[in-house]
């Protein structure tokens, strides 16, 4: 378990104090994939670097598995770091060393028995599906492959925690999906705790168990990933989530006298129920679908539809009542 208590990070910029992280307290559970999202400059990278003290906080404490690490000396801190792997946006591999040597570096750091190093390196490269690249140099690998090598290096000493600082932000869509799938696979296999920083909500949706929204150095909202997408509370959460769902009313739309413009949100099981077809069948109305999207978060569907109901006032009212009862959320955007 990771616990941050009242963390402040203050940078001096041209004699000005700049609070990159402002009074953040956070508990991350063992074995979960915990994500921190926010716009650039929100302080999320600074915050994740506080966890292994690459960045020393100006105030506050960090606990790893109950042990306070903020007051450890150099040697003790190194020991803690052996238990915390980390990967980066730009991979940060040693360009002058082979892939095998890059992975072996972590093992040297842990004084791993020399004769067992080649075997362990092979095992790790197999774990990240790259056994054939052992003797290549980083420059000969694609971005996704480089990140997989970085993952192998980070996992070499079987750490209980993996920190990912914008680990997919420099990758294209295909490589991003590959890394996300790999991290999920490793999390399931080893129950490693993953802390993942990103500004990509698509990654958040696919990977995270829980999510924290960060803005201007502060944690605004911490919640499970499904709730984050279905019921974001804070302004920052709403704006980030909306960008993924991106279901808007066309600007040119004019709602007529006998029409009602609606936004429906579906969640969980009710996504599968044919609410709309039932409504148009049972009541004397027609339904136009203007825009819509159904997304899956941890295999749980979540959908948003924009509809126009057309028909006599009375029938429309009845249909509305029926729909209201059967969906998660109904908002009337226009018309009567």
């Amino acid at each position: 378990m990771i616990e941050l208590k009242n963390i402040d990070v203050i940078f001096q910029q041209n004699k000005h104090d700049f609070k990159a992280v402002n009074n953040v307290s956070l508990k991350i559970k063992k074995g979960e994939i915990f994500g921190i999202v926010g716009p650039s400059g929100a302080g999320k990278s600074t915050l994740v670097r506080v966890i292994n003290l690459l960045q020393r906080p100006s105030r506050g404490q960090v606990f790893i598995e109950g042990q306070e690490i903020t007051n450890l000396n150099r040697k003790e801190l190194r020991k803690v770091r052996l238990n915390i792997g980390m990967i980066f946006q730009h991979f940060n591999l040693i360009s002058g060393s082979t892939i095998a040597e890059n992975v072996a570096f972590s093992l040297y750091a842990n004084n791993y028995p020399k004769d067992k190093i080649p075997g362990r390196v092979k095992e790790l490269l197999e774990l990240v599906h790259l056994p054939e690249k052992a003797d290549a140099y980083p420059a000969n690998l694609s971005g996704g492959q480089k990140q997989r090598v970085a993952i192998a290096r980070a996992l070499a000493n079987n750490p209980e925690i993996l920190l990912c600082d914008e680990a997919t932000s420099a990758l294209d869509l295909e490589n991003t999906e590959e890394i996300v799938a790999l991290l999920k696979e490793i999390n399931e296999k080893t129950k490693i705790t993953i802390v993942f920083i990103t500004h990509e909500m698509e990654v958040a949706k696919k990977l995270f168990d829980r999510i924290a929204f960060m803005e201007q150095g502060e944690l605004k909202e911490v919640t499970d990933i499904y709730t984050a997408f279905t019921e974001p509370k804070e302004a920052i959460s709403k704006s980030l989530v909306e960008r993924v769902l991106n279901v808007n009313v066309p600007e040119a739309l004019v709602v007529k006298e006998d029409e009602t413009l609606l936004r429906l949100s579906y969640t969980g099981d009710d996504s599968y129920d044919p609410v709309i077809s039932m409504a148009s069948k049972n009541y004397d109305i027609t339904v136009d679908i203007i825009n819509g999207k159904i997304d899956y978060i941890h295999n749980k569907p979540f959908g948003v539809l924009i509809l126009i109901l057309r028909g006599e006032d009375e029938e429309r009212a009845k249909a509305l009542e029926y729909i209201q009862k059967n969906v998660y959320k109904l908002e009337r955007l226009g018309g009567k």
């Binding site: 190194r78 591999l93 040693i94 360009s95």
Partner: peptide, 28 residues
């Protein structure tokens, strides 16, 4: 590259290991 050194620090490596296996290798 500062990031490479930082990544080495994050593994828990000693300074002498980082000098030998990162700093000198990258600067060769």
């Amino acid at each position: 590259d500062k990031g490479v050194i930082e990544a080495a620090v994050a593994t828990g490596a000693s300074t002498s290991l980082i000098i030998r296996k990162v700093l000198f290798v990258e600067a060769t």
